[in-house]
Simulated assay, not measured.
Amino acid sequence: MVGEPQDDCLFCKIAAGQIPADVVRETETTVAFRDIHPQAPTHVLVIPKVHHPDAASLAAAEPGIAADLLREAGQVAGDEKLESYRIVFNTGSGAGQTVFHAHAHVLGGRGMQWPPG
């Protein structure tokens, strides 16, 4: 069922504390942790504790939690003292999504070029 933890989901297991992560923030609805393959000096993932396959699905089903996710991404950037940063949502394997649990990448600490990739 959408929204419920999935037994085969890496991020559901991290949210439940079953798999360790370098957690930098946690709220009632979100967990933020450092990416194990950082693409910038600061690379933190912010995930909802509920399972939805991507950001659009999360926003459609639970807009309040989607707002929490964005608010926490901003808090992470502030905690990391980032003056400039990027928040990225990848949707689908063609866009680089490898874990199909909604999540935001908070990237900073270096210049970001446009267009990306």
Rank of each mutant, 00 (worst) to 15 (best):
G17L: 09
A102T: 04
G111Q: 15
A61P: 04
V106Y: 03
I47D: 01
Q75W: 01
L107V: 14
V44C: 04
T30Y: 02
V106G: 02
V50K: 12
L69A: 09
Q97D: 08
S93M: 05
T30D: 01
A67W: 00
E4I: 00
Q97I: 12
P5F: 04
V2W: 09
I36V: 15
A55L: 15
L10Y: 11
P5V: 01
P53Q: 05
V99S: 04
M1L: 12
A32N: 10
E62A: 11
P38E: 12
V24C: 09
C9P: 06
Q39T: 11
I65K: 05
R34L: 02
R34S: 09
H103Y: 08
E83W: 00
D7R: 14
P53T: 11
G94T: 14
L58Y: 11
T27H: 02
P63V: 00
A102D: 02
G94Q: 13
T91L: 09
G3L: 08
D35I: 01
T91V: 15
T98R: 13
K81P: 00
V76Q: 03
A102Y: 04
L58V: 08
K13P: 02
K49T: 08
F89D: 01
W114G: 00
E83P: 00
H101S: 08
P115N: 06
A59D: 01
